[in-house]
Computed example of a mutant assay.
Amino acid sequence: MSGLAADEDYFESLYRDSADPWGFRTRWYEQRKRALTLAALPHRRYRSALEAGCATGELAAELAGRCEHLLACDFHEGALHRARLRLAGYPQARVERRRLPQDWPDGVFELIVVSELGYYLGDRDLDELLRRARAGLGDGGVLLACHWRHRFAEAVRAGDAVHAAFAALGLPRLLRHEEPDFLLEAWSPDPTSVAAREGLSAMTDPTPSEQETR
């Protein structure tokens, strides 16, 4: 099977047995991780965004509120059915069946999100996904990755190794959030910080006397 190294039967059984096999909608861990992911995005809005591996569409639904156009992709029909239902109220979002990286979409994106996908890919496919993501990222675009750090049977590599491969692209890193359970990082060809974009980094720190009078 091209694309995912994990056996397709693994995903088939997950979506056959549960409408929400990872608890994306119900687990506080997942809800909190999505909130951190949204907070990590340095721009308020994005004209065009791609989520590679959207699963049931929970993250895509929250990304849609920040995007003018969002393409959410997955390869399994069970996931896509749930994602389409979840995104039905977001006309700016479309859901497509794509086996990545082979079916990588054309075009340039201001935001590319790869969440909980990279460790399922074999070496060649991960390299291809990284190449296509870099080629499809706009000049000031943001590439965001988030991955579970613990090993499990279906994973080809740990999440840390996935992020090391992303870092090897050589893009300036905007953010790294590290917890025992997951890594969340963002990179961009444009390293300008959020504070600098809003003119805050040009402000001088208050002097000690000014601080004392506040």
Rank of each mutant, 00 (worst) to 15 (best):
R34H: 14
E12Y: 05
R16T: 12
A39V: 06
Q31K: 14
S48D: 15
Q31A: 15
A55G: 00
F24G: 02
R27E: 13
Y46D: 06
F11K: 09
S13Q: 06
L38W: 09
P21G: 05
G23C: 04
R16V: 04
G57Q: 04
F11N: 05
E30F: 10
R25K: 12
R27H: 14
S13W: 02
P42F: 13
T56Q: 13
L38D: 08
R34Y: 12
Y15N: 01
A60L: 06
R45E: 10
E12Q: 09
S18K: 01
T56P: 05
A61W: 04
A61K: 06
D17H: 03
T37A: 08
W22H: 03
F11Y: 14
F24V: 03
A19I: 12
A39E: 13
W22S: 00
R34F: 11
A35F: 11
Y29T: 06
S48G: 14
D20P: 01
D20L: 08
H43C: 12
G23N: 04
H43E: 13
E58Q: 13
K33P: 01
L36R: 11
L59A: 02
T26K: 09
L41R: 09
E58S: 11
E62F: 11
A61I: 04
A40S: 12
S48V: 14
F11D: 07
A19R: 15
T56K: 07
W28Q: 12
L36P: 02
C54Q: 02
W22N: 01
L38E: 08
A19W: 14
E30H: 08
T26D: 07
S18Y: 00
P21W: 13
T56G: 01
R47L: 14
A35P: 10
W22Q: 02
A40I: 04
A49S: 05
L50I: 14
R34P: 10
A35I: 12
A55M: 01
L14Q: 07
A39R: 13
L14H: 03
L41E: 09
L36W: 08
S48I: 13
G53Y: 05
E12R: 11
R32P: 06
L41Y: 14
D20C: 01
L59M: 06
P42S: 06
R34L: 07
R34C: 08
L36I: 01
A40W: 09
S18V: 00
R45L: 13
S13C: 02
A19M: 13
G57V: 08
Q31S: 14
R45T: 10
Y29H: 07
